[in-house]
Simulated scan of single mutants.
Amino acid sequence: MIRVCAQTWDELYAGMFMVDVEGWSMTIFNDCDELNYCETCLSIDGRRWSFDSGDRYGTDPLALLSMWEHQTLERLLKAL
């Protein structure tokens, strides 16, 4: 995982945080130092997922993570 944005997780505090994970570009919303939702995911081959407020609950990729996975991802993002 590589941070793509200029600011660290702590410096941003609230806003969009961009990372690259094995070729996937992800934009994640940092809500007051908490991992909130995924705004977009884009793969190398052009597959794309984008947040839409009209989507059914649970379609956000972060909503599919277990509590342990969510906490681990948040810890990794804070360490970048």
Rank of each mutant, 00 (worst) to 15 (best):
M1Q: 04
M1Y: 06
I2P: 05
I2S: 13
R3S: 06
V4H: 13
V4D: 09
V4M: 14
C5M: 08
C5D: 11
A6L: 07
A6E: 11
Q7F: 04
T8R: 01
T8L: 01
T8W: 01
W9R: 00
W9E: 00
D10G: 08
L12V: 03
L12H: 02
Y13F: 13
A14G: 09
A14Q: 12
G15F: 05
G15P: 05
G15Q: 06
M16S: 09
F17P: 00
F17Q: 02
M18H: 04
M18D: 09
M18E: 08
D20N: 11
D20I: 01
E22F: 09
G23Y: 01
G23D: 00
W24H: 12
W24C: 09
W24N: 06
W24F: 14
S25V: 13
S25G: 13
S25Q: 15
M26I: 15
T27R: 08
F29H: 11
F29K: 07
F29A: 03
F29G: 00
N30F: 12
N30H: 11
N30K: 09
D31S: 05
D31F: 04
D31V: 02
C32Q: 13
C32S: 14
D33H: 15
E34V: 15
E34M: 15
L35R: 04
N36A: 10
N36S: 13
N36Y: 12
Y37P: 01
C38I: 10
C38L: 14
E39L: 13
E39H: 11
E39M: 10
T40D: 08
T40Q: 06
T40S: 12
C41Y: 02
L42S: 09
L42G: 03
L42N: 04
S43P: 05
S43W: 05
I44T: 13
D45Q: 11
D45L: 08
G46K: 10
G46Q: 10
S50N: 15
S50Y: 03
S50G: 11
F51A: 06
S53H: 05
S53V: 04
S53F: 05
G54A: 12
D55L: 01
D55G: 00
D55R: 01
R56F: 02
R56E: 05
R56Y: 02
Y57M: 03
Y57P: 04
G58H: 00
G58I: 00
D60V: 03
D60S: 03
D60C: 11
D60W: 01
P61A: 11
P61G: 11
P61E: 04
A63N: 10
A63S: 14
A63C: 08
L65S: 00
L65I: 04
L65W: 04
M67H: 14
M67T: 15
M67A: 14
M67S: 14
W68F: 10
E69H: 08
E69P: 02
E69D: 15
H70W: 14
T72P: 08
L73H: 05
L73C: 03
L73D: 03
R75G: 10
R75W: 12
L76C: 05
L77T: 15
L77R: 15
L77W: 12
L77D: 14
L77Y: 14
A79H: 13
A79G: 14
L80M: 06
